[in-house]
Design a protein around this nucleic acid. Structure first.
Length: 429
RNA sequence: GCCCCGAUAGUGUAGCGGCCUAUCAUACGGGCCUGUCGAGCCCGUGACAUGGGUUCAAAUCCCGUUCGGGGCGCCA
């Protein structure tokens, strides 16, 4: 018999025989009747087994929580259960038995340590509240994808195994590539720019980025999902417009498809209004200095500084016109003030989620910027070549998907938004 | 790389020199209960990360080790 998802049990099914499949959430055995709460991705249903009736095929005493089973029975017109839908079982197939006791509670409202949860992630993710994070993340990404698609972007995939570092400074994971040394790419930056030279006009990529920084915080991962775009014949203003549009579209989509199986409360941000405020770096600098923060022009804001700024701008906002010493070699300087750049970060309160800019498109300027940053242009020949034969002005950004998901769902630790997070000490599972 | 902090049953916790053959909740095993729905009641199993030291006495104090958490730096 065809399987029915628990969420599909509606008035149309009343009085009919249905088959549901899932995991045993909970078992309650009374003298004359047994109740089995059966859970699938979409919800929980109560399976009622009356002891007076004909045998249903299995020994109920052998059932354990989280075992997998198939139940066929009536979805009765008269629903006695007060809290959830109910099926009266006529046949139960035990498809697989779960060992006991469980290394992690699935049905209980007992919060386990993140460490314990991640060690048993397969079980942890059976909790609907955790599944909801990834359901939301998926819808967030789809919303962003569809926005970019409708604005003429083509989705591309660039190599993650590369010969040289993207920006020089950051630590990379080294890998052995046959007889050569290679690295895991920290960003698709150079490749997406090359594709602008190739005339793709507008590209975006969703893929992993690797950073070998030994950071130990609740908002860093060593492998994260980067959403990167690059657009030709465009400047930083165009890129910012595309970014705020993407974020809004992603959040709209996440909200309109919010997963709710009923046994938890999903909290989400409201759809933000556009445009996001644009605040220049110099203005942020004065704000921090006025609040007593010790910081000079040319220095990056620390967490305390960003908290000061975030109090003034509690939602999404851009910090623009960053000093050139804080930005990578490919960032275009401000034509009106060469100590500044046509760059921006997207912030949510004190959290940075995106970094972007108009890029340098003149090969000679790019060469000078390499040297100024202490990099050897010879190491980036494959990249520079793309600029020598007709590179349009262009701009783009890179957005940390896990950080955006974390903000959307108000989660305290970024590891919650990664199925199998890679941090300073974790590579398993 | 730097600075703080922590480790007690399957899970989450209390205890912080003798009252600890270690608390509570939940899970797990057994029993009771005419449909439960955060079910209830009774009984039971189950833990002081590890190696040293201090002390008459260590879960408790000190040191090392292992594992973990948080913050900073850096960034998405």
């Amino acid at each position: 018999m065809k399987r029915t998802l628990i969420s599909e049990l509606d008035n149309d099914h009343l009085g009919k025989t249905v088959t549901v499949e899932g995991w045993i959430h909970e078992i309650k055995r009374l003298k004359s009747v047994d109740f089995i709460m059966l859970r699938d991705k979409t919800g929980i249903v109560q399976v009622t087994v009356k002891k007076t009736e004909t045998p249903i095929g299995i020994d109920l005493g052998s059932l354990t929580r989280e075992s997998v089973m198939r139940v066929t029975g009536e979805f009765p017109e008269k629903q006695i259960s007060k809290k959830m839908k109910e099926i009266t079982a006529s046949k139960i197939d035990l498809l697989n038995v779960a060992a006991t006791p469980l290394p992690l509670p699935v049905a209980e409202n007992i919060e386990s340590d993140l460490e314990t949860r991640l060690n048993n992630r397969f079980l942890d993710l059976r909790r609907h509240e955790n599944y909801a994070i990834f359901h939301t993340k998926s819808n967030l990404l789809w919303g962003i994808r569809s926005f970019l698609h409708t604005h003429g972007f083509v989705e591309v995939n660039t190599p993650k195994i590369v010969a040289s570092s993207t920006e020089g400074g950051a630590d990379l994971f080294r890998v052995q590539y046959f007889e050569m040394d290679a690295y895991l790419n920290q960003s698709p930056q150079l490749y997406k720019e090359i594709l602008i030279s190739s005339g793709f006009e507008r590209v975006f990529e969703v893929g992993p980025a690797f950073r070998a920084e030994k950071h130990n915080t609740t908002y860093h991962l060593n492998e994260f999902t980067s959403i990167d775009i690059e657009m030709g014949f465009s400047n930083h203003e165009d890129a910012m417009a595309m970014l705020e549009g993407s974020v809004k579209s992603g959040i709209e989509n996440a909200l309109s498809h919010a997963h709710n199986s009923g046994n938890y409360q999903l909290r989400m941000l409201e759809v933000p209004e556009l445009p996001f405020p644009r605040v220049e770096y110099s203005k942020c600098l004065s704000m921090v200095q006025n609040a007593g923060g010790k910081i000079e022009f040319g220095e990056d804001f620390g967490p305390e500084h960003l908290r000061v700024i975030g109090e003034k701008y509690p939602g999404f906002y851009f910090i623009t016109k960053w000093p050139s010493e804080l930005r990578p070699f490919y960032t275009m300087v401000d034509p009106d003030d060469e100590t500044l750049t046509n760059s921006f970060d997207l912030q949510f309160r004190e959290r940075e989620i995106t970094s972007g800019a108009q890029r340098v498109h003149d090969p000679e300027m790019l060469r000078r910027r390499f040297v100024a940053k202490g990099l050897n242009p010879e190491d980036f020949q494959f990249y520079l070549n793309a600029f020598r034969y007709g590179m349009p002005p262009h701009a783009g950004w890179g957005l940390g998907l896990e950080r955006l998901a974390m903000i959307l769902l108000d989660l305290k630790n970024i590891r919650e938004t990664s199925l199998f997070p890679r941090d300073r000490t974790r590579i398993v599972p």
